[in-house]
Nucleic acid binder design. Structure first.
Lengths: 236, 236
DNA sequence: CCAAAAGTGTTCACCGTACACCCATGT
DNA sequence: ACATGGGTGTACGGTGAACACTTTTGG
């Protein structure tokens, strides 16, 4: 930390952006808002905003923006820092440094327009990342980073359960893996592997029949956060 | 990104701090500087400093501080973003947000005091992290994060070679693993495993005799950056 | 009865571990 | 000669992949 004289320290605007991900309709989706003012008016962007005051904590700012712009409660979600983006010129108005967070959510309730009345929409990440899709600022790169972080965390943590409702079946959980990874998994080996991870799942003792076929057992999230051994994607 | 009126945006001071790690004298060491002015005058802290201007890129600021405070050339080193620390009150003078970077270096040349004449020293991380050791600001937490990142990256990347001289033996490389992980590895299985990772090592064809015993082959870093399959620490 | 999904058992190939053993040097 | 570290061969146990097979429902 520098000891330079304080009068020479340039001050910059600090923002917090959110990549809120959910699994919905067979695809990994991200919550975006349509910008109401220039620059990038009418273009999709990550929800986020500037620090509310000089004394607001970063994590608190992220939780506040999450609740303001999506109506979701931060304490119910995983919310973790992703990375900080600060290339000069990434915001045409002024120098803006953005600390980005990722959040993982089960069924997002139909997003309500936030306090500033902008529309929040869910967009499949595959669509958001297409070259033809226009995304404001450098947010497409941020989305790509968030998606890669998510794919990677499925391998060695119990994150997948965060995408499921409070009670879920083994197939619900497998669907999360298959959708996020875009890869099919053997249901039988998957079952055995997950059951073998102590503390990942807690059986409720109940069963559900949602299709023809034998009813599936219901589980709740267990206390485990890491996967031992890891659940690896196929090398491709 | 918020569309709030710009006159309401609080500005904060933005700093860049560096966790420069190296393996030396049988331990993982970190470069620290003794602060010359309050707060924490005379206390060890991470090298770093404020953004030089409102238009300076974050990565550039990190590279500049690295060269200014340690004399190391950034282009020769891995330099990657670790995390951003922004708790209010972490700097008693004013609100400071710090974007932290980690760098990995082979033999650090005896660190020369930087432009502002503060002394740079190498400290074993084990010593820096001891409860009794005083470290400025929240830098002890940052050091702990940097060390954990390093330990973890050894598992699935070829990072270990970054701690070695341009030409090194298999034992040099194994020493890095053993020192960073604090764990003994079987030399024979280690050898086979590393050799099996395509692109990790390039044999120079030369041999060195540094102790009694059969001379060891010399290698250079290869183009590979990821380890397939991973080199896992023993579960403990 | 049949299709379909849940879940179990079994086989096989591969990989990490442990370790016996040989190689090549300094002293 | 002998200690020491470099490097190869090999046997064993565990884990993942593939898949046959049983169980239990809806239609």
């Amino acid at each position: 930390m520098s000891d330079g004289p304080e009068w020479s320290i340039p001050e910059v605007a600090l923002a917090v952006d959110l990549a809120v991900l959910t699994v919905h309709d067979g695809s990994l989706q991200i919550m975006l808002v349509k910008r109401g003012i220039p620059p990038y008016e009418g273009v999709l962007a990550l929800p986020g905003g500037f620090l509310a005051s000089t004394s607001e904590d970063l994590d608190h700012a992220a939780a506040r923006e999450l609740s303001e712009e999506t109506g979701l409660e931060a304490k119910a979600l995983h919310l973790e820092q992703l990375r900080t983006y600060g290339a000069p010129g990434r915001d045409p108005r002024q120098r803006v440094i953005t600390v980005c967070y990722v959040a993982f959510s089960p069924r997002l309730p139909t997003p309500t327009a936030g306090g500033d009345a902008r529309a929040a929409v869910l967009v499949p990440v595959e669509k958001a990342l297409r070259p033809r899709t226009q995304i404001a600022f450098d947010h497409k790169k941020i989305i790509a980073d968030a998606v890669e972080r998510t794919r990677s965390k499925l391998e060695y943590t119990t994150l997948a359960a965060a995408f499921c409702a409070p009670e879920f079946t083994m197939t619900d959980l497998r669907d999360v893996y298959e959708i996020v990874w875009g890869e099919e998994l053997d249901p039988r080996n998957f079952h055995r592997k997950i059951i073998g991870v102590e503390g990942f799942l807690v059986p409720t003792g109940e069963r559900v029949s949602r299709q023809p076929g034998r009813p599936a057992a219901l589980y709740r999230r267990g206390p485990a956060t890491v996967l031992h051994p890891a659940m690896l994607r196929s090398r491709s």
